[in-house]
């Protein structure tokens, strides 16, 4: 397996995160969103959400979602061995949510995360912010905020390593 590291330069990732934060500010102004709640998807999504939370100066605590109980591949591969508790410290009813993940690929994780989120309550609105958006969608899901866009072949797998420092790593299966 080849292991090519890309965007391991922390300053490059910092610049991408600052751009995402600026774009989120603009979207919030346009859509008249005040006091959004930030929710990260385990594990990489939480790392990104923490940084965006800091840049956007959101004071309310960050929510953490584990989507293992909502995955659509349970009957094929069983329960994931490492399930972490989900924790949403603040009621999400009628709130504006910024859902954050590290990589958007098939869209199945986001489908699961939305289902999980709605079992906690009925948010007013959900925005999706993703650090790296790649091709290969299998569901009608699109991000509102994109850090960077990347075209990869189906045998390539992109993941975020962290939490300190953060780096995007490309695994090449071929």
């Amino acid at each position: 397996m080849n292991n090519t590291n890309i965007w391991q330069d922390p300053t490059a990732l910092d610049a991408i995160l600052r751009n995402m934060s600026d774009a989120l500010k603009t979207v919030c102004i346009t859509k008249q969103i005040e006091q959004p709640l930030m929710v990260g998807i385990h594990t990489g999504g939480i790392w990104i959400a923490q940084r965006l939370q800091h840049l956007l100066e959101i004071s309310e605590p960050l929510g953490a979602l584990d989507i293992s109980f909502y995955r659509d591949d349970f009957t094929r591969i069983g329960l994931h061995p490492l399930v972490r508790p989900s924790h949403l410290p603040i009621a999400i009813d009628d709130r504006n949510i910024i859902l954050v993940d590290d990589v958007l690929y098939t869209g199945r994780t986001i489908r699961a995360a939305l289902n999980a989120l709605f079992d906690y309550g009925r948010p007013a609105l959900v925005l999706l912010a993703v650090l790296a958006v790649r091709n290969g969608r299998e569901l009608p899901i699109a991000p509102d905020i994109t850090g960077l866009q990347i075209e990869l072949s189906p045998d390539q797998y992109l993941k975020l390593e962290g939490p300190e420092p953060l780096s995007l790593v490309l695994d090449n299966a071929s």
């Binding site: 293992s68 109980f69 909502y70 399930v83 972490r84 508790p85 989900s86 079992d119 906690y120």
Partner: peptide, 21 residues
């Protein structure tokens, strides 16, 4: 025990059910 800890959090939610099974 770790998995049970994650399931315990389900009891504190509005919908006390997950679609796993």
């Amino acid at each position: 025990l770790d998995t049970a800890d994650s399931f315990a959090a389900v009891a504190e939610r509005k919908v006390k059910k997950v679609p796993l099974c």
